[in-house]
């Protein structure tokens, strides 16, 4: 089945491993991702922080391209892109706002856009847990995960429509379908510090440290995430968090697609595990998967 696909800028830069593993897992599930032609950046946090209509215009250009594709659903792996696209689509329902956004565009936008949803929800809608389980080649039963959604995926609830905004459980259902042990992670929707890593490093370090500390205390093998920015803050910036908390975590932070990919039998290379700053070797050893050398080291 074909799905219109909006990868988002992160997956082309710092998070190519998310992109690789998303494509691999979707292919395994029979989901054909058709990338939007000439898509542009959604504007991320800076655009909506500066001006709501600027943010909406950047998003609507993409939605407008999507409206001309055949797919009824537009998937995106990034919660920040998802949030911006959904907010923009909602804003366009207001005629006054629509007129002001259209002013910024080359041509007025289409009157209706396809529904935008996360890759994670797309997977769950495409196949149920039983069918996903049937595709598992390698049980993850040796692994214990802390699922971490970040703050944007489920909030605001009425726009994101991602289940209980305090306690989303979709990732858990996918991972448990692969026999992993998934703990009830209380900070699953806490904020990691988002885009403040650059202008206000101490904030991101402190917030990420809190999440890493709890996961460490709960003795999980890895934190599993769905957001490129969360992954960067928890993984690449982990030393900064360690410094802020005056401790050492050595906590692997995987994308949920990487975890699913391992269950589906993909090689660490296919899933881009070597991109992780904190090596996933410990996980691969527990799984008895070879090619541990392919994964990163620190």
């Amino acid at each position: 089945m074909n799905y219109a696909y909006y990868p988002g800028c992160s997956t082309q830069g710092a998070s190519t491993d998310y992109e690789k593993s998303t494509r691999a897992v979707c292919a395994a599930l029979g989901m054909n991702l058709v990338e939007l032609p000439e898509w542009n950046c959604c504007g991320s946090t800076p655009a909506h922080a500066v001006d709501t209509e600027l943010s909406a215009a950047l998003c609507v250009r993409n939605l407008d391209i999507a409206a001309r594709q055949e797919s009824e659903t537009l998937l995106t792996p990034c919660p920040s892109c998802l949030s911006n696209l959904k907010h923009a689509a909602k804003r366009m329902q207001n005629p006054e706002a629509r007129a002001r956004v259209n002013e910024l565009l080359d041509n007025p936008a289409a009157s209706e856009f396809p529904a935008v949803t996360s890759v994670m929800q797309g997977m769950a809608a495409h196949l149920d847990a039983k069918e996903i389980a049937s595709r598992t080649r390698k049980s993850l039963s040796a692994l214990t995960f802390a699922p971490y959604y970040g703050c944007l995926m489920s909030r605001p609830a009425e726009i994101m429509k991602f289940g209980d905004p305090e306690n989303p459980t979709l990732m858990e259902s996918l991972l448990t379908a692969c026999s992993a042990t998934v703990l009830d992670f209380p900070l699953k929707t806490a904020c990691c510090g988002a885009s403040y890593g650059i202008p206000e490093r101490s904030m991101t370090a402190r917030l990420s440290a809190r999440i890493l500390q709890l996961a460490t205390d709960m003795k999980v093998d890895a934190i599993v995430v769905a957001c490129p920015l969360c992954q960067m803050n928890l993984d690449l910036r982990q030393p900064q968090a360690e410094k802020a908390a005056d401790t050492r975590f050595a906590m692997p932070v995987l994308y949920f697609t990487q975890a699913l990919g391992l269950a589906f039998g993909f090689s660490p290379d296919t899933l881009g595990l070597e991109k992780l700053r904190v090596s996933a070797d410990s996980l691969l050893r527990k799984l008895g998967t070879g090619a541990a050398n392919a994964a990163g080291s620190r």
């Binding site: 082309q12 830069g13 001006d51 209509e53 250009r61 910024l104």
Partner: peptide, 26 residues
């Protein structure tokens, strides 16, 4: 880890220009 590409990706077929015009009008 090659996490940061040295060259920017320019949206082809006039896409980059279209985005630039959004900023200009804004």
């Amino acid at each position: 880890k090659q996490k940061l590409p040295f060259k920017p990706y320019v949206v082809p077929n006039g896409g980059a220009g279209a985005v630039g015009r959004i900023f200009k009008r804004y």
